[in-house]
C-alpha cells in the first residue's frame, strides 16, 4: 500500500488539520508516513500546501515527485489546479467548488470550472454548503476530508478515530460536530463519484 496526497488551500483554511487526522489514522494502522508542511510567511493568506505520503514500506522523500500524487485534496478550486503537475495520470482531484477570493485578479470562476471539467477524475463539491446543512459551519475542512476518505485506502472508522484523537481535547461537542461533517462529506462524494 502506498498513497501520495497533496493537500492545498489558502493559509488559514485548515489543511493542516486534515493532514493531522489522516496522519494519526495512518500511524494507528501501522503505516509509515511523512508529511511536509508550509509554515511562516505564506500562512498569511497565501497559497499553502502539504505533501502527505503513506506507505506500508519506509518512505524516502518528504516531497512527492511530479506526476506521482494519487490524490489532490483542495479546499479551494484554483489552489487544486496549482498542483496538477504533481498528479499522476489516473489521479483524483477532490476539491471545494467555492473560490476564496483575496486577490484582486482572481480569475472568473467559469474559467476555473472549465479547467476542472477537463480532468478525467475529480470530485467537486461545495463543502461550505454541506457543512451548513449539517450545522457544522466551522468544520468545512473536515467535510472535505470526508469527501476524500474513499480515496485514502484507510478504513472510514480509522479516520473517525483520528478525529476523536485530534479534536478530543477540545471537548465532545467539537468531536461530534466534526464526525457529522466527516459523514456529510463522505455521503455527498459517494453520490458524485
Amino acid at each position: 500500500m502506498k498513497i501520495d496526497i497533496i493537500l492545498s488551500g489558502v493559509g488559514g483554511q485548515g489543511i493542516l488539520s486534515i493532514a493531522a487526522v489522516i496522519g494519526e489514522a495512518a500511524l494507528k494502522e501501522g503505516l509509515y508516513m511523512k508529511q511536509a508542511e508550509v509554515h511562516g510567511m505564506s500562512q498569511r493568506g497565501g497559497d499553502v500546501q502539504s505533501n502527505l505520503r503513506l506507505s506500508n514500506q519506509p518512505i524516502s522523500s518528504d516531497l512527492i515527485p511530479r506526476g506521482q500524487a494519487d490524490l489532490i485534496i483542495s479546499l479551494e478550486p484554483m489552489e487544486g489546479l496549482r498542483y496538477l503537475p504533481y498528479l499522476k495520470k489516473d489521479g483524483w482531484l477532490v476539491t471545494n467548488s467555492q473560490p476564496f477570493v483575496n486577490i484582486p485578479n482572481y480569475p472568473e470562476i467559469d474559467k476555473i470550472n472549465a479547467e476542472l471539467d477537463k480532468l478525467p477524475k475529480k470530485v467537486v463539491l461545495d463543502v461550505e454548503a454541506i457543512a451548513k446543512e449539517v450545522g457544522s459551519v466551522r468544520s468545512t475542512n473536515i467535510v472535505m476530508l470526508g469527501a476524500a476518505t474513499p480515496f485514502l485506502g484507510i478504513e472510514y472508522s480509522k479516520i473517525e478515530d483520528g478525529i476523536r484523537h485530534i479534536f478530543g481535547r477540545k471537548g465532545e461537542e467539537v468531536v461530534n460536530m466534526n464526525l457529522k461533517a466527516l459523514k456529510a462529506g463522505f455521503d455527498v462524494a459517494q453520490r458524485l463519484q
Binding site: S42, Q68, M78, L81, L84, P85, P107
Partner: peptide
C-alpha cells in the same frame, strides 16, 4: 526528488500542467 532525478538522468512523468488561468496568491 525531481531535480535530483534529473541530475541522475531519470525521466520525469508530467501529465498535467498548471492551467494558465491560475494566478499567484502572495501572502498579505
Amino acid at each position: 526528488p525531481d531535480t535530483v532525478g534529473k541530475a541522475l538522468g531519470k525521466e520525469i512523468s508530467d501529465y498535467y500542467t498548471i492551467p494558465e488561468v491560475v494566478e499567484q496568491r502572495p501572502p498579505a
